[in-house]
Design a protein around this nucleic acid. Structure first.
Lengths: 176, 176
DNA sequence: TATTGTTATACTCTATAACTATA
DNA sequence: TATAGTTATAGAGTATAACAATA
């Protein structure tokens, strides 16, 4: 889990590579030694996780790049979206829903609170927990944030192909 | 990009949750307020990256757990597989192929070298680069490593469903 | 006792920059 | 000047543990 499956493919690099490599050897079994650019993938070819990781790395890089003007990262984005869709819920509920560690969520919420996009209020039912809300400023930001996220999604659809994008979303969203 | 899209779903948690939750409300529009366990996902529902990230986190957790007896992580695994399939290639070539940073690959290879699974030899053509090989010990380990990785892959197929696993692998492996 | 939120720590990964030695 | 490899650093993310307040 260090880099390979991690690093996956980089938007710029893979684009550049495709553009530069003028269809060299491509086919011909273990031609690795003959083609300095294309290595054999071996059994990685059979690992769904390998491809998922590569795609996920591309997605994060593009997302971060696309929302760089706002300085919002994927996890922060997902927390804002969940709070917007479920105002008043506790940190514990948000964390469970997004599979974010309590400790990590605490720090993440501090960041969003410092930017005055979310607020914690004492919960009525359980005085141990905090109810989470978007602030007025946070609500005002959401359209701009969502527009950029949609821009990223469009780029992703272009990257994988519209049909593949649709199929992947269908396969992944309707389970679990 | 911090936790949410990151954390995705956890093998143990999601399994436990599915087992524990006796089909509560499930349907009924924005039922968030009524069901303490199921929050609305909002526009995350439209983000392929959200689901890809969740699956990727599950994959890494299961992979790491499955290979814990060997103490091999995904990126290390992918490097071993690529070196085995392409013996004698340089760090630069391996790194480009797997999208691993030079600096990161250096440290990763040190770890594998310390375990005596790979060896660097001076390259013949270019004395700046190192040619990478599996050692005898490394070669002897590969069957055991691959068997565990295959075990992980089987668990992944079970997790997403055999049909979905096949479709995802087909969609993701034949592009880029 | 268990849960909620917080703080702290150690480790991994990521992204750079700087450096050397070769080309 | 560019490439191959190394070292170092700062910033995220992950996984724990420990703690206070509340249930």
């Amino acid at each position: 889990m260090q880099d390979d499956m991690q690093s996956g493919f980089n938007a710029r690099q893979s684009a550049a590579k495709r553009a530069n490599a003028p269809e060299r050897i491509r086919r011909g079994g273990p031609a690795a030694a003959k083609n300095p650019e294309r290595l054999e993938r071996g059994v990685l070819q059979n690992h769904l996780g390998y491809f998922v990781r590569r795609l996920q790395v591309w997605v994060f890089k593009d997302f971060i790049h696309t929302l760089a003007s706002i300085g919002l990262r994927p996890a922060q984005y997902s927390v804002l979206v969940i709070i917007e869709a479920n105002p008043g819920r506790s940190q514990a509920a948000i964390g469970r829903s997004l599979n974010i560690e309590r400790a990590r969520l605490t720090r993440l919420l501090h960041q969003l609170e410092r930017r005055n996009w979310i607020a914690r209020r004492p919960a009525t039912a359980n005085s141990r927990s905090h109810a989470l809300f978007l602030t007025g400023e946070g609500k005002k930001m959401m359209p701009r944030i969502k527009a950029l996220a949609a821009q990223h999604e469009a780029r992703l659809a272009e990257f994988v192909g519209a049909s593949r994008h649709r199929q992947l979303l269908g396969l992944l969203s309707n389970f679990g």
